[in-house]
């Protein structure tokens, strides 16, 4: 098994297995991130979504398999909003500037850095909020701030962990549109989500994960009853609405096949 390293891929994961304390989380996973792709990794809690992101990031070392990153490709990461300490004493501009943290011996921002941060915040629609405390932002604005922090590193690949977890519908739309715009500008985006109707169905490419890759492709190929049953362990109906799949949970549990270590 294993995906051969493709010349153009930003990151190629080949035959990767990973686990914590002997418990497998990822098993023989193959996946290649192509330039300017926009992919959602879907699966329930514990399916290995975040672990796959960490493998792509390079913060964990797989127990088996290989990970190849194209040399010189900058990768940025946006954490879940729920994991952030919103009481931390930091303004929006200070937070964004954190990612520009190398080789400068003076703490304050240069005029060029200030201009760059202001332009970035303006581009993301929060230009007037640079001096606000991070707690004073709405959910969508907080997500934009972290995307700005990630973009300051000028990445070619943006990894996001559950970017719409715990946010309202308006914020979800706001984040989706913003990510769509960034992707159209050439940024590759890989995000995790367990929200099939609100998030996954709107993305151009999906990977269904249940420790192994169950299916990969456009939503029309991944959001289908058989794949969802193997991935989520529940029978679901899939309806079509305005050309998009809509998942209906019938409430019937299904016993997942045990995963061999």
């Amino acid at each position: 098994m294993g995906t051969p390293v493709s010349a153009g891929a930003l990151v190629t994961v080949s035959g990767v297995s990973f686990g914590y304390d002997g418990k497998p989380v990822l098993l023989d996973v193959d996946y290649a991130v192509q330039p300017a792709e926009f992919t959602g990794i879907v699966g329930p809690s514990g399916s290995g979504k975040t672990s796959l992101l960490k493998v792509l990031l390079g913060t964990v070392t797989p127990q088996r398999g290989t990970v190849h990153r194209q040399p010189g490709v900058a990768v940025s990461y946006v954490p879940q909003l729920e994991t952030v300490n919103w009481n931390f004493p930091v303004t929006v501009a200070e937070c964004v500037l954190m990612s520009r943290s190398t080789r400068r011996l003076l703490p304050w921002a240069t005029p060029a850095e200030k201009l760059e941060v202001a332009a970035l915040l303006e581009r993301l629609g929060i230009g007037e909020l640079g001096r606000r405390h991070i707690r004073e932002l709405s959910g969508g604005q907080q997500q934009r701030m972290f995307i700005a922090r990630a973009l300051l590193r000028r990445p070619r690949l943006l990894l996001m962990d559950e970017p719409t977890s715990g946010v309202d519908i308006g914020t979800r739309h706001e984040v989706l549109h913003l990510l769509g715009d960034l992707n159209r500008d050439g940024l590759a985006i890989v995000l995790t989500t367990h929200d099939l109707n609100g998030m996954a169905a709107h993305l151009p490419h999906l990977v269904a994960l249940q420790r192994r890759v169950i299916a990969a492709g456009p939503p029309s190929e991944v959001i289908v009853p058989d794949v969802l049953e193997q991935t989520f362990g529940a029978r679901m109906e899939v309806l079509q609405h305005l050309g998009m799949p809509v998942v209906v949970d019938t409430g019937e549990p299904v016993r997942l096949q045990p995963v061999a270590g």
């Binding site: 990031l57 390079g58 913060t59 940025s76 990461y77 954490p79 943290s101 190398t102 922090r149 590193r153």
Partner: peptide, 8 residues
């Protein structure tokens, strides 16, 4: 966590 993957 993010600092670690951002070169810190």
């Amino acid at each position: 966590e993010v600092a670690d993957v951002s070169g810190v």
